[in-house]
Design a binder for these strands. Structure first.
Lengths: 237, 237
DNA sequence: CGCGTAAAGTCTACATCGTAGACAAGCTTC
DNA sequence: GAAGCTTGTCTACGATGTAGACTTTACGCG
């Protein structure tokens, strides 16, 4: 199908509300959600707002900055979860929160995992760093030393991002064609080289992301029950 | 500095070897390693090979396919590790192998984690699926049921990708300016909002990726020692 | 050897992109 | 009303991916 040129939101191109960074980012996010990252061009976004593309540069220095703004906007959706009994339950809940966020904005996930690669930690937008601070506080309050808290955070968030990437990879839009496509794909694999993978066809077909995530978190928490070892150097083998 | 236009490899633009998919992908990878993803344009790659940009389309359908080719090429570098005592040591070693691969080609990592999002599992290039099959075999041989093996694989690889993303984020090229930049960045953070993060400055400054990864794997393996629970549905809370 | 066919490489052309720079319109504050 | 800043617009340029027609090269078969 040809790329749909109709405006995403309801403005019938007649009204012209005053622009603002927030409005720009919001419609940018809507556009990405609806049509993917490639659809977010300066020109298209301008047209979506009924404005000259150049006007956008008053609110974002360039396209990259605009992308950063969108990721920050998405991360702001992360609701903090106050007052759960223990830190473990809290970690679990935050994990599910991030997962749902990713499912709500799958097209933004590449940005989420990729944009920070270009910006050193200290210089990232504050919204991006807030979850980190929260989890550190949570862990330290739970009794971890600050440095251990950092390590735990890394394991936790690392796993979390990894899970999200995994889940989105296996996600196929239409569940009807899902199985067909999957089987077709698996069938394509040479039987001698990929016996186990092919045998897993049925299991792969019904993927339960929430359960999978939960199981992973359980593994992680169980592992954390064993006290962390502190070593002077990385083990030789 | 202006973008360096000198050819990356040693060909002095006089010789014109016959093109091949392998040659194209190899120089593409070299270009990405040397100058980043953005430098990999059809025109630039053509110039690198001393050929018309259009000739590339004989070996890759379009730019996206070229990127896929590069990721597959990188994954082929993953050396399989035969004959280690137990499966745990093997997982650990493969993890370090992937980590080193990522450090060798940091600019390709975004592709590694991002490209599969656009391609359903069954239709991915074979090279991409080979590690999956290998780990499944490893786990099943170690006594896991096929379906448990899949879950463990997901937790393992998820964590692994997450760690790599984490590590590359905190990686700064010049270790001299590292500390400066880091402190500068941290100093920029509002003290009331980010007390723990700011306090971690020194710990953040000396990051040991290998040790961090090792610790994470240990946590994961410890967690796996506790038998996996099988639930009918995801827990309510 | 020669010739015909397929493969490999090239040329031209076009739509689309990000964005620099000069300018105009509109709002705020005396 | 005038001055000055903010916001939006216009025009223009270089770079990008790639379609389509063309030319060149390589190679098999008589």
């Amino acid at each position: 199908m040809p790329p749909p040129k109709n405006p995403i939101n309801s403005s019938p191109a007649g009204e012209k509300p005053r622009l603002s960074r927030d409005l720009v980012l919001t419609t940018a996010l809507a556009l990405v959600d609806a049509e993917g990252l490639d659809a977010l061009t300066m020109r298209r976004l301008g047209q979506e707002l009924g404005r000259d593309p150049m006007s956008l540069y008053r609110y974002a220095a360039n396209r990259a900055a605009l992308l950063d703004g969108v990721t920050e906007l998405v991360l702001k959706e992360l609701s903090i979860s106050p007052g759960l009994p223990d830190w473990q339950a809290q970690l679990r809940q935050m994990a599910h929160g991030l997962r749902l966020l990713a499912l709500r904005h799958p097209n933004v996930v590449p940005l989420l995992v990729t944009r920070p690669l270009s910006t050193p930690l200290g210089l990232r937008p504050l919204g991006t760093l807030r979850p980190l601070e929260q989890i550190l506080a949570l862990l330290i309050d739970a009794g971890f030393s600050p440095s251990d808290a950092l390590h735990v955070y890394r394991a936790y968030y690392g796993f979390l991002y990894g899970h999200i990437l995994n889940e989105l990879q296996e996600f196929v839009v239409d569940p009807e064609e899902n199985e067909a496509l999957l089987r077709l794909g698996l069938h394509r694999l040479p039987a001698k080289e990929f016996p186990r993978l092919r045998a897993l066809g049925p299991v792969l077909a019904d993927y339960d992301g929430a359960a999978e995530l939960d199981q992973g978190i359980t593994i992680l928490l169980n592992g954390l029950a064993v006290p962390l070892v502190h070593e002077e150097a990385a083990p030789k083998h």
